[in-house]
């Protein structure tokens, strides 16, 4: 059975450098095979250990579930420890990620802009310097069917849409990443919902160690 496909992880701040190289010590160490830290692992370490967010908040920012975030974080820490102990180079690259920055709208000059440097909301428009700036969500991010979407070219690939369904009446709802399906309550029969599309087939039990 093929493994479950990985979801896209959202990266807000890309790393400032592409990697690190050890100094001192044996010259053989300097040219050793680097440890490849994935972008998502860098982002997980940044959110969790640098910004001191808890795993639940950080998983919401990266748009993955909390357990997935914990796995990414653990793998990142293990790689960092390996690089430190073995004196290896660190290369930050790869991973199944997309880069994103938040968009803002200025009602003074009618322009839209993003702020790739920070996560805080800017208080002034970079163009007309007015302070009538508000956060703005591109329409393509939620539903791509909007006709007047000026960012038609900047749709964010969200991959396959998962569905939560109600086991008794079959009502379906789009699954929100990071929100357990059991915490969603069916509006018809007030029952907790379940993950998946078809009520007949139960979820396959995950086997441990199956991931590579």
């Amino acid at each position: 059975m093929s493994p479950r496909t990985r979801k896209l992880r959202k990266i807000v701040n890309p790393p400032p450098v592409k990697g690190f190289r050890p100094y001192g010590g044996d010259s053989a160490l300097k040219n050793s095979e680097p440890v490849y830290l994935l972008y998502e692992e860098y982002e997980a370490l940044r959110l969790c250990d640098y910004d001191m967010l808890n795993h639940n908040q950080a998983s919401g920012l990266m748009e993955v579930s909390r357990p997935t975030f914990t796995r990414i974080c653990a793998s990142g820490r293990q790689k960092m420890a390996k690089a430190l102990v073995e004196g290896r180079q660190i290369a930050i690259e790869g991973g199944k990620v997309f880069f994103d920055s938040d968009w803002f709208h200025c009602s003074g000059c009618g322009s839209y802009f993003n702020d790739p440097h920070k996560e805080v909301v800017p208080d002034r428009c970079p163009l007309c310097k007015s302070n009538s700036v508000e956060s703005w969500e591109p329409a393509g991010k939620r539903n791509s069917g909007d006709g007047d979407n000026i960012f038609s070219g900047t749709n964010i690939p969200t991959g396959r849409k998962d569905i939560c369904y109600c086991p008794s009446c079959g009502e379906k709802r789009e699954h929100q990443p990071g929100v357990p399906c059991r915490s969603e309550i069916c509006s018809q029969c007030n029952q907790p919902m379940q993950r998946g599309g078809m009520p007949e087939t139960g979820r396959q039990k995950r086997t441990r160690g199956g991931r590579k």
Partner: peptide, 16 residues
């Protein structure tokens, strides 16, 4: 273009 600019930390301003 958008991912390229995001990774290079270049700000985009869209005039409407």
């Amino acid at each position: 273009i958008k991912p390229m600019l995001d990774i290079n930390k270049i700000q985009m301003i869209v005039i409407t």
